[in-house]
Design a protein around this nucleic acid. Structure first.
Length: 419
RNA sequence: GGAGAGAUGCCCGAGAGGUCGAAGGGGUCGGUCUCGAAAACCGAUGAGGGCUUACGCUCUCCGAGGGUUCGAAUCCCUCUCUCUCCGCCA
């Protein structure tokens, strides 16, 4: 959530942000303002009544302890109690509505985010390497994998349904190697602590990172237990410190976790229907940071560099894209995507998304820090990025390292992991 | 899944309808003492909200949500979680 002070002091700024994001319909600004105002009025009135009740009740106690008759005051206080109850009913309705709207408001965008209406307005900030040249027509990973017998889409569909797949032999081993390589890189060279935690989380966690309540349809929720399958280890990692106050001396905190990720891909019908690009279950190594607000944009640059390093070591050509206002996800203040070149698909493919959420998730998940001992607790900033999506990395390795006989070369960086 | 016990501030722990935001201890911070430190002693030390230019005033919070009452940490109901025993189990 955004700082509620913004709602009181800069409604125009919120309006502008919604327009830039192309999300003007998400929140009714006029209603937001009215509900907030009335709810605060009621808080003030209720507080005054409570104060009166408290002092009169104390008096009752005093009178009774001296054996006096307090029935007159008791009657009066009873009336106050009834009024408070009425106000509380109204207050509950208003608070619920206010919270609903507050949770729906996307994050404020950083000034450096370019205006834009969609993907086409994203800005390429740098590229690394070059498109590899093939003396033959490079195949898409799904054809390569099917021909080599290492990607089995038919059986994935039989076992689970559309957008599921099975790895056999080299594909399975290669993806495991990719994951181990990435985890080792981030833990031994980039300063991240490896975490392993739940793939299934409660609603508080999904709200904390911003998935719920706005985007319910996009995730798998086990109704019976009120639990959801994580769409990314970001949920597990960021919620590590939900409802906690970190000590400044222990910051910044860098954590990484490998997990399966589950996405319903509602609304993606017809897009990327073939291959490993858009599936319901995939593995990913996630990077999450908890940092001092003053440093968070520097930390974002370092985070992107950490993710890029994976592609450099795999010698895969990529570009880094700064997402425009309309393409930046709702929780994020600023996002870079890393797009790897896919010679078989003949296009770039997003393989990592790195975002600075500033205090948006921290506020939702109540993650605070104390800069030094004795300081007041304040919201910290959270960031996350894929480091990287393993299934897509596998696809990229396959397409970029393919040979004309249909076999696949192994990047040097992965060789120690494939003995 | 069955039976029982419990959930209090940074931690431990008392409190069992009124003056309790909560005894006591520990921790932390500040001070006295000391050449310095330890010990001892003294003092301070939660979070969130509303009103206010401000000093400040005030409300809420004792796992969560309801209820009883003039008044609830304390009584009642529901839920969640933790622990112990039994069952099951990679």
């Amino acid at each position: 959530m955004i700082d509620p002070r913004i709602i009181r002091e800069d409604l125009a700024g919120i309006k502008e942000m919604l327009l830039k994001r192309n999300m003007a319909g998400v929140v009714d600004i006029a209603e937001l303002e009215a509900v907030d105002r009335e709810r605060r009025e009621i808080i003030t009135r209720t507080d005054e009544l409570r104060e009166k009740r408290n002092s009169l009740s104390k008096e009752v106690g005093k009178i009774k302890s001296q054996g006096g008759d307090a029935s007159q005051i008791m009657k009066e206080v009873q009336g106050i109690g009834d009024t408070i109850k009425e106000l509380a009913d109204r207050s509950n309705v208003l608070n619920e509505r206010f919270n609903e709207m507050h949770l729906s408001i996307p994050n404020m965008l950083d000034k450096s985010v370019p205006d834009g209406k969609g993907e086409q307005d994203n800005v390429v900030v740098r590229t690394w390497g070059e498109k590899p040249k093939f003396p033959f027509a490079p195949k898409a990973h799904f054809d390569l994998g099917a021909d080599a017998g290492i990607l089995d889409f038919e059986r994935g569909v039989k076992i689970a349904g559309a957008r599921f797949y099975v790895y056999r032999g080299l594909a399975a081993r290669l993806e495991r190697a990719i994951i181990n390589f990435m985890l080792d890189l981030h833990t031994t060279e980039h300063g991240y602590t490896e975490i392993f935690g739940p793939y299934i989380v409660n609603d508080e966690s999904m709200i904390g990172t911003g998935q719920y309540p706005k985007f319910m349809d996009e995730y798998y929720r086990i109704e019976r237990d009120g639990l959801s399958l994580i769409p990314t280890a970001e949920v597990t990692l960021t919620n590590l410190y939900r409802d906690e106050i970190l000590e400044g001396e222990n910051m910044p905190v860098y954590v990484t976790m490998q997990s399966a990720c589950f996405r319903r891909e509602a609304g993606a019908a017809g897009r990327d229907t073939r291959g490993l690009v858009r599936v319901h279950q995939f593995q990913k190594v996630e990077l999450v940071k908890f940092v001092d607000p003053e440093t968070s944009f520097d930390e974002l640059e370092k985070l992107v560099a950490n993710a890029e390093e994976v592609l450099k070591r795999l010698n895969l050509h990529y570009r880094v894209v700064l997402l425009c206002s309309a393409d930046t996800s709702a929780s994020s203040a600023k996002t870079y995507d890393i797009e790897v070149w896919m010679p078989g698909l003949d296009r770039y493919m997003e393989i990592s998304s790195c975002s600075n959420f500033v205090d948006y998730q921290a506020r939702r998940a109540k993650i605070r820090y104390r800069k030094s001992k004795g300081d007041k607790a304040a919201y910290l900033h959270t960031l996350n990025g894929s480091g990287l999506a393993a299934g897509r990395t596998l696809a990229a390795v396959m397409e970029n390292y393919q040979k004309d006989d249909g076999s696949i070369g192994i990047p040097d960086a992965l060789k120690p992991y494939l003995k």
